[in-house]
Simulated scan of single mutants.
Amino acid sequence: MSVWRRKATELFNIRFGPTQHETIYDVFRTLLGLVKEAHNRGDEDQLKKIYEYAEWCSTQRADDLRNAAGVSFYEHLVDDEVTYQAILRWIKPTIFSIIKDLLKWRIKDETVYRDLVDKFNVINGTSIQY
């Protein structure tokens, strides 16, 4: 079993098979729902696991893991107000730098995007450029 599958099974009890999860993209679609639920419950332990798993995938050499984390998880965080605000706290600056173009593309409004980057920089003590 691949490491990403083993981690998903151990951390989130995700099952794999033709009628369940087959790809890393399927896993991230599930995690997107779980992260919203965890934010609504204030479940810090679950949030930590989800964001760390996404970060781990984002730093792997395998393109499919990095891409799935970006397009099936991170870019959709801006779709929901709770997860949008959570970016400021839960996404590490190194990851934010990697995904900022995805966020810009997803947000589409330059002013809203710049506001997110500005807030991120203030809260995290960074100077990430637009």
Rank of each mutant, 00 (worst) to 15 (best):
I107T: 00
I99P: 09
W4S: 08
A38W: 13
W90S: 15
K92Y: 11
E75G: 00
T111G: 02
F12P: 11
Y74M: 04
A62G: 01
K100Y: 02
Y113H: 07
L103D: 05
R6F: 05
K100N: 01
T83L: 10
P18K: 10
R29S: 02
L102Y: 08
G33D: 13
D118Y: 14
I123F: 05
T9C: 00
Y113W: 03
T59D: 09
D79E: 05
R66F: 00
A62C: 08
N121G: 06
W4R: 13
T111R: 13
A8C: 00
S72G: 06
A62M: 09
E10R: 03
R29C: 00
T30D: 14
G70M: 09
E44H: 12
K49E: 09
S127D: 15
T126S: 15
A38M: 15
D79W: 02
E55C: 14
N13M: 02
D79P: 04
A54Q: 13
S127H: 10
L103K: 03
D118E: 13
R114H: 06
R6E: 11
T83W: 01
H76M: 01
E52L: 14
P93G: 08
K36H: 10
Y25K: 10
Q46V: 15
Y113M: 01
I107L: 06
R15Q: 09
I128Y: 07
L116M: 07
G33S: 15
I99G: 11
L65R: 11
G17H: 03
Q129G: 10
D43W: 07
G17M: 06
T59K: 13
Y25L: 03
I123C: 05
I107K: 00
L77V: 12
S97A: 08
K104Q: 12
I14P: 08
K7E: 06
G17C: 00
V3M: 14
T30H: 14
R106D: 10
